[in-house]
């Protein structure tokens, strides 16, 4: 499965923006479904990636390569592990497609009636979990994340991630996500 993802030319490790993007998508998946973290480990077992990521501690360490986390580590993320994270995002998003579609459909209906997203309880629960997890895990003192001290900006980010996850869950979602990670990085 990972063989469908070619190594980009001139890039040997995962770029900074890609690490941020992958961790953010995984965070959104965890907020959509409370059992998503277990599902991620199950997907790793199904894809036989246990040799690369044997347990949840290593998985957490890999996610901590996101430079905007409060607990971050400066070790580079190899492309093989980036592919594993991409596969996990896509596989978990595919299993949550029904929830993602439902939340986005409700969002459309609420917008048509000029109602805020928090009007619908499941959407409000997702946004609440996303805001809390984001503020708990990310370093809001970084200048790039000053924007997300605002409640509304964080809500918009959470809703955008729902649509991006749906794009990743499509037929060619894995390739699309993989190549998007290296936009602006190849020469």
């Amino acid at each position: 499965m990972l063989a469908a993802l070619p190594n980009p030319q001139g890039v040997s490790v995962c770029p900074r923006r890609a690490r941020w993007q992958l961790d953010l998508l995984l965070l959104a998946l965890e907020c959509v479904d409370l059992h998503a973290s277990e599902l991620m480990l199950q997907v790793l077992r199904e894809l036989q990636l246990q040799g690369m990521i044997p347990n949840r501690v290593v998985f957490w360490q890999i996610r901590c390569t996101n430079p905007f986390r409060q607990v971050t580590q400066r070790t580079p993320l190899p492309l093989a592990e980036t592919k594993a994270l991409t596969a996990v995002v896509v596989q978990v998003a595919r299993r949550q497609t029904a929830i993602l579609r439902h939340l986005l459909l409700v969002l459309d209906q609420l917008q048509a009636q000029n109602l805020p997203p928090e009007t619908y309880a499941p959407l409000a629960a997702y946004l609440d979990r996303f805001r809390r997890n984001f503020r708990k895990r990310m370093n809001l003192q970084r200048s790039s994340l000053f924007l997300y001290k605002n409640h509304q900006a964080l809500n918009e980010l959470g809703l955008k991630l729902l649509a991006q996850l749906l794009l990743c869950a499509g037929t060619k979602g894995m390739e699309r996500l993989w190549f998007s990670l290296f936009d602006g990085e190849v020469s």
Partner: peptide, 12 residues
Amino acid sequence: VPAAAQTWLSGV
């Protein structure tokens, strides 16, 4: 359309 979707996904 797919190119725009990819650009939006990457956020650049």
